[in-house]
């Protein structure tokens, strides 16, 4: 046991009579220990002076009325104010997390739909002047048949049909795009237009 600890225990009344006698003998023969002991003793006495402090009694007179007021507020509102505060804090934290999450993730862009004609050529490249597939003569001479093949390909894909089944759906005679467009009435054209807008703008 070190000397500091012994001094504290002595002043704290924790030593047995035997230990106490031994410590007091040691204290008499050691000036260094005496000096240290006096420091602790003085400090301990200063603490005793702070044990019973005179206070303004009016504070303690107010304690009960203050408690009763707080109690009536709690009875009226229960845990609602605290709960509301906790919930709003929780929501604010959740909002911050959501914002951080979405800022760190790019908005997913739907894959580009590639439509091919009967020869397997991407239709968009046929109309793109910068593309190797671009051929003005090819387009003009085969325009109608390619549009027809595009239309059939779209119908086949949308309805998941085999080529045989397609013949039941697609018109066999006058099946070119021009005649098809001519047969569309105003209401159907509006529906198609609205559907295209939905697909393009809203992506659904």
């Amino acid at each position: 046991m070190n000397t500091n600890n012994k001094i504290v225990e002595y002043l704290d009344g924790q030593l047995s009579q035997e230990e106490k006698d031994s410590f007091e003998n040691e204290l008499k023969s050691s000036p260094g220990l005496q000096s240290e002991f006096q420091q602790y003793k003085k400090f301990k006495e200063s603490l005793t002076q702070l044990r019973n402090i005179e206070v303004d009694e009016s504070y303690f007179i107010e304690t009960i009325p203050k408690f009763r007021t707080r109690q009536s507020v709690l009875k009226r509102y229960g845990v609602v104010p605290k709960l509301t505060l906790s919930l709003s804090t929780l929501l604010a934290v959740a909002l911050v997390f959501v914002l951080i999450f979405f800022r760190s993730n790019k908005v997913a862009i739907p894959n580009k739909v590639v439509v091919v004609d009967s020869n397997g050529v991407d239709f968009s490249t046929l109309l793109d002047p910068s593309s190797d597939n671009f051929n003005l003569n090819y387009i003009s001479s085969n325009e109608a048949s390619h549009y027809d093949s595009l239309l059939n390909s779209m119908i086949t894909k949308a309805l998941d049909l085999s080529p045989d089944e397609l013949s039941y759906v697609a018109p066999s005679n006058n099946s070119d795009l021009t005649s098809l467009l001519q047969n569309i009435n105003e209401k159907e054209a509006d529906n198609i237009y609205n559907e295209v807008l939905k697909q393009k703008i809203l992506g659904r």
Partner: peptide
């Protein structure tokens, strides 16, 4: 504060 005596308050503050 409820402690009005300045000397006591100083000692208490230190503690």
């Amino acid at each position: 504060d409820v402690i009005k005596d300045l000397e006591t308050k100083e000692k208490l503050d230190s503690l």
